[in-house]
Design a protein around this nucleic acid. Structure first.
Lengths: 334, 334
DNA sequence: GATATTTTTGCAACCGGTTGCATAAACTAA
DNA sequence: TTAGTTTATGCAACCGGTTGCAAAAATATC
C-alpha cells in the first residue's frame, strides 16, 4: 500500500542508497540529487518507514510511558506535559497502563518486543524489579515521581517526600495548631512512608504538640473522605496533612458534610497543587509539587541517556513550597 | 544486545524458519521441535522483535491514540479505559497530543511513518482532513466522541449532541423554569453547535419560556466561571445548561462567589457526569455521557475493522440520561 | 512392504530500510 | 594538463524477522 524507498528510487532513476541518504541528515548527497529525489518522493507521497529503519539503526525513538495513576487528575497534567515534551524531541510515547496488571513482567516483555529506546515510569509506586529488568537489558529508565535515593539503580526525578513531610509539619506548627494529624495515603506506598517519616521527625521536635496519624486506602477522593469521616467521629485533630490534593478534597467534603467549617474547625493542607486546588470552590492550601520541572527534567535526562548510554544513574530532586489558600488558618500574629 | 532468532536457531540446532514458526501461532511445528526451540529461547532469554516481524506481516499492532483534550479531567478516565481496552486486545497505544499542534499534518505523517494499524481520535474537535488523510492511506480511523452523521467518512462513536441539547432543554422545562440559559462551550466546536441546535429546537416548542445563550472561550473551569460571572452581572437566567461538567463547576464557583445559591437562585445542569460531578462538595446535576460504552465500542469497532479492512464506515450513537444531584431544583409537584 | 497422503522442515527470497566500501565524478593545486 | 583530493554515488550485505515452495520425514492406506 504505502510507497517504498525502492519505488522512489526507480522513479527518480537513482539508487536506493541515494534515496535513503536524502532522508538521513548528515549524509552526503549533492544538491542536484536531493532535488531529484525529493521531487519523486513528493510526487509519490513517500514517507520513510521509521520501523524498518530502526532495524538497522537500532533506534526506534519509541519511549515507553508507564503509569498506574489513571485516577488522579494530576496525572492528566503529567501526561500532557510528557507527551508534548517527548514530541518536541521527536520521541514517541508508547503508553502503558499498569493499573490492573498483576504481572508487570508482561509489560516489560512487551516494551522489549517493541524495542523502545527508553522507559519513563511516572508513578510513586514502581513495582520492584521493573526498573532492573530494563537496566539489565540496557534500556534507559527514568523514574519520575520516584523515591529519592542517594545511589539509585535508575534515574530518579521527583521531590524528597521526607522533606515534604517536614515542610507540612513545620507549616502546621507555625500556624499554632496544638493537635496535628497525618492523614496519609495507602501505607504501602513509599511516598506515604517517606512523608510520614518526615512529618513525624519534624513533629518530634515539638513535644507539646499532640500528633495522631492514620492512612487512607488509596490516593482518592472517596478514600480521603471516608477516612476523614471516621476521624471526625472521634476527637479529631485541629489540622491535617492530607496524602495528596485529591484525598484532601475528599476530606474537605467530609468536613463540610459534617457541618464543620474549614479552616475554622478543622484545617487541611494537601500536596501536589493540582489545577483544581485553586478552583474557588475548593481553594485548597497545599504543598506545590513542581510537576512541570519534574517532567521536563525527566525528559531531558532521558534524552541525555539516549545520547550517552553509559551515563550513570542520577537523582534529581526538586523542592516544594507551600501555596497559601483557604484551608489553613493564618499564622497567629506575634 | 538483544537475542535474535538466529542465535536461538543456532543454539537449538535448527533452521531460522523453525524458530519463527514456534513463535507464530497457527504454524506447523512438531512437538519435539517446539520443545527444543522453546528450551533454547528460554536459556537465551529470547523474545521476538515485534517491529521486525511487522515488516513482513504488515501489522504493527500499534494504534495511534490522538487527542487534544489534555485539560479536561474526564479524559483521564477516557485514556484509562482506552489503554486498558487496547492492551487487552494486544494492541499498543501510541499517544499523540494534538493540543498545540498547529500542523496536524505532522502527526499524520508521524503516525504513517510508524505504520500504525489504526488511529483512534478521542476528541469532539477533529481537525478537518485529519480523518481523510488516514482513510486515503488505508488506515482505519475511529472517531470517538465525534460528531454524529448519517454518512460518516470514518467510524464515529459517541452521543447525539443535538439530542443531548434537547434533553437538557426538556429537563429545564419540566422543572418549571421560565428563563433558561444555554451556557455553551467554544462556539467553534461542533459539539457546542449541536447542543445549541438541540437546545433551541426543543425550546422553540415552549414560546412562554425566555431563552438566552452565550458561549465560553473553552471547555474549562476558568472559562465557565468567567462567563457565569459576566452573566450574573446582568439579569441572569434561572437555570443554565453548561457546556460540560468542568465549565459547569466553574459556573458553580462563580455563583457561590457572587453570594448566590445553587439551585435556589440559579440552577445548573452539566454534561458528561465525570467522576468529580458526584463529589459531595460539587454534587452537580448533569447529563451522563456513557464514556465506558463509547470507549469499549470504539475499540471493538477498531478491532473489527482491522479484521475486515473493507468494512464500511459506521456511526454508533449512545443515548444520554440525566443524573439527578443537587444543582437543579426538583420538578414542581403537579 | 510398497505407495499415497499428510505433516515437518529448511532453503532462499523478501519486507523497507541503512551503511561500509569501492569506484566515479567533481574539484584543487601546480 | 595532470596528478592529488575531496565529494557523490552505487553495489551488496545486513538489520530481525516471515513465508512460498520443494524436499524430507512421518502417517495412513491397501
Amino acid at each position: 500500500m504505502a510507497v517504498t524507498l525502492k519505488e522512489v528510487a526507480e522513479r527518480a532513476g537513482v539508487s536506493r542508497s541515494a534515496v535513503s541518504r536524502t532522508f538521513t541528515d548528515g549524509a552526503s548527497v549533492s544538491d542536484a540529487m536531493r532535488r531529484k529525489v525529493e521531487k519523486a518522493a513528493r510526487e509519490l507521497g513517500y514517507s520513510p518507514n521509521a520501523l524498518a529503519s530502526s532495524l538497522t539503526t537500532g533506534r526506534t525513538k519509541l519511549i515507553g510511558l508507564v503509569s498506574n495513576n489513571f485516577h488522579n487528575p494530576i496525572f492528566l497534567e503529567v501526561f500532557d506535559l510528557f507527551t508534548r515534551g517527548l514530541q518536541d524531541r521527536g520521541l514517541r510515547p508508547l503508553l502503558v497502563n499498569l493499573s490492573d496488571e498483576t504481572e508487570p513482567d508482561a509489560s516489560v516483555r512487551m516494551l522489549r518486543q517493541y524495542s523502545v529506546d527508553g522507559v519513563i515510569v511516572a508513578s510513586s509506586t514502581l513495582p520492584p524489579g521493573f526498573a532492573r529488568a530494563f537496566r539489565d537489558a540496557g534500556v534507559p529508565v527514568v523514574h519520575a515521581f520516584g523515591r529519592y535515593s542517594s545511589s539509585p539503580e535508575v534515574h530518579v526525578v521527583g521531590i524528597d517526600n521526607r522533606e515534604a513531610g517536614r515542610l507540612a509539619a513545620r507549616t502546621l506548627v507555625e500556624r499554632g495548631y496544638t493537635h496535628a494529624g497525618f492523614l496519609g495515603g495507602p501505607e504501602s506506598s513509599t511516598s506515604t512512608q517517606d512523608r510520614y517519616t518526615g512529618f513525624m521527625t519534624e513533629m518530634s521536635a515539638h513535644p507539646n504538640i499532640k500528633v495522631t496519624y492514620s492512612f487512607a486506602k488509596a490516593y482518592s477522593f472517596d478514600a480521603g473522605r471516608d477516612e476523614m469521616l471516621r476521624l471526625l467521629k472521634d476527637a479529631p485533630a485541629q489540622a491535617y496533612f492530607g496524602g495528596d490534593d485529591v484525598m484532601s478534597i475528599g476530606a474537605l467534603s467530609a468536613i463540610s458534610d459534617s457541618g464543620l467549617n474549614c479552616p475554622t474547625d478543622v484545617g487541611i493542607i494537601g500536596l501536589n497543587d493540582m489545577e483544581m486546588a485553586r478552583w474557588n470552590n475548593i481553594n485548597l492550601t497545599t504543598i506545590h509539587q513542581p510537576i512541570r520541572q519534574i517532567v521536563t527534567s525527566s525528559i531531558e535526562l532521558m534524552a541525555a541517556t539516549l545520547a550517552d548510554p553509559e551515563r550513570f544513574p542520577e537523582a534529581r530532586i526538586f523542592s516544594c513550597a507551600v501555596v497559601e489558600r483557604g484551608t489553613l488558618r493564618p499564622a497567629p500574629k506575634v
